[in-house]
Design a protein around this nucleic acid. Sequence first.
DNA 1: TATGAATGAGTGTTCATTCAT
DNA 2: CATGAATGAACACTCATTCAT
Lengths: 190, 190, 190, 190
Amino acid sequence: MARPLSEDKRNAILASATEVVAALGAGAPTAKIASGAAVAEGTLFTYFATKDALLNQLYLGLKDELAAAMMAGYPSRRGLQDRWHHVWDRYMDWGAAHPAKRKAMRQLTVSDRVAERTRQIGGRAFHDVQALLDESLAAGMMKDQPPAFAAAVMEALAETTLEFIAREPKRKERYKCGGFAAFWGAVSKP
Amino acid sequence: MARPLSEDKRNAILASATEVVAALGAGAPTAKIASGAAVAEGTLFTYFATKDALLNQLYLGLKDELAAAMMAGYPSRRGLQDRWHHVWDRYMDWGAAHPAKRKAMRQLTVSDRVAERTRQIGGRAFHDVQALLDESLAAGMMKDQPPAFAAAVMEALAETTLEFIAREPKRKERYKCGGFAAFWGAVSKP
Amino acid sequence: MARPLSEDKRNAILASATEVVAALGAGAPTAKIASGAAVAEGTLFTYFATKDALLNQLYLGLKDELAAAMMAGYPSRRGLQDRWHHVWDRYMDWGAAHPAKRKAMRQLTVSDRVAERTRQIGGRAFHDVQALLDESLAAGMMKDQPPAFAAAVMEALAETTLEFIAREPKRKERYKCGGFAAFWGAVSKP
Amino acid sequence: MARPLSEDKRNAILASATEVVAALGAGAPTAKIASGAAVAEGTLFTYFATKDALLNQLYLGLKDELAAAMMAGYPSRRGLQDRWHHVWDRYMDWGAAHPAKRKAMRQLTVSDRVAERTRQIGGRAFHDVQALLDESLAAGMMKDQPPAFAAAVMEALAETTLEFIAREPKRKERYKCGGFAAFWGAVSKP
DNA sequence: TATGAATGAGTGTTCATTCAT
DNA sequence: CATGAATGAACACTCATTCAT
């Protein structure tokens, strides 16, 4: 092979896209993404056929990364609350450690350039969280609501909490803790 | 002297902007907004100096309307939970009744074309909710968290709930009720 | 109305397109066409929705003009050969007088950006020639061939002749005459 | 020393170019030509310095092939009309048998990427036809016209006829015959 | 004041050609 | 020699804003 597609370059493009999309939204110019990756405008299109393809793959990559972060060191044998707490804390830590990734993910979640199908695939990465959710629901959590609703509630509260952490990093621990309390209150049975 | 600009036209532009922004996001072309208002492209700019001005004023208008809807028939003399329940229900009813307005508001909330200052001004419309919040916090709700955080938690849960109502209007009452339960659980002290 | 679409500007664009397409083919950049018309790049698109629309309308305009030129002063009462001679001479005169138009027409005829439908509509302008053709065929011309074939033969010979006239304008009369002789020989029955 | 470049690869590129240019015109991407030849994009440029070089050589190759086809089995001793008929029939047969080659040749003839000089060289392959032409002219054919004109008339009529054959292959023989009648009428003295 | 034509910078994408592997 | 990734100048088209009417 002549020159293999460089994993480095691909990553550089994704990294640049993360920054630029975080700052400018899904409308960010591909030219800016390319230059942020120190790559020619045309090169971007040898790694991603279209801007939409790039955006969708970025979304998927971020989702995967977040899912992996959330499940790292997952205490399978502990009780429900402990496991939720673990997941929540990992989410917070990841979001606080990677503000651009989190912001980019949010922009992409809101953008209509990420296809429905991509969102479905992205959801698969969270099968472990899904399992935890199903178990919790079976145990009486969030009486009478569909699992998707509980998941959305978690995501909304996590997102809100991370927004405050991003604004006041010094209060990270307090928000992290208060956020979990809110989540647990929202979701656990009375 | 009466205002020479037609209030009707201004409202038509805002109404059209609501629809178009709901559907296309903040990137919606001014030309489309103008044509939706049955007004010439240039006319839009005699009512709003720039597209950003239009977007910011639309944001403000929607916020005002929502705040008014939330406080209509506010039972000042009832207990905290009843008052919150009222506010929540009015929020849900307004959002369910005006899906385009809600969606436009969401798009604008996420867009960087709405200035920080606009968001602050928009917050003022909610002073009554703020008062309720302060009272609740003083009573021990959401231990140790700033009022803004509690407000954001409410908004996030309300938004999430409305999203589900929009998708499954038939389950409106169930989501409305379950959403409030989640909110109250998230926010009330243990 | 604010400022009506200027017929002058439209014509300037078509005229510029004629020159540029004649020189560069249907691949000519719209930017060059616009600048040749002393008009901003974007203005071209207020007069023609797409480049294809411009090209198709240009084709139609040229066809109409040629058809009109061919039928000017048509001697309806003369014999077949005289009428064909008239039509041939007017074709030659028009082509010799407007080399860019002729060349542009040729480029467009060959280009796949001119739609089949456009070609059909363009053909309608030649209904008088068509009638002459039908009459001639009925009189025994081009035994056993479809009208379209006879028309194509004429066009091919006319095009060839004009090519030579364009290269050697001084011999215009000789080519014009020899071209007609060839056409008449090709087409008249033995 | 044998040529280090593979004749096979060169031919594959030319064959692919024939197909692709026939379908897409001279603007066809070199990448598509290369992939049609099962050859890397860059390889194309070791066989042909530039796209123009490829196009010009393709033109020459097609012209040579056509000229050879036209003269195969040429009945040198027969009369003028028989010899013209032979040449005409071979042209038709070749064109009908190789529609892509014919179409590519047409696209190239019309394109400005084929240099004037290339066209001249291409003409040389037709020296036998040229000789036939000169002989015919000396015998009084096409009174007072230059040989090039007669040649062009033949080409134009042949091209037209082939176009109709391509559209209605079933009527091949009729067009072939009618086309020759037209040609002969156009060209023979009255 | 209302209109909509005019503007030109900006957009995503293509492509002939180069050159590292 | 063969490969195909890299390049950046084009390209067709969009759009917020201006301004002649």
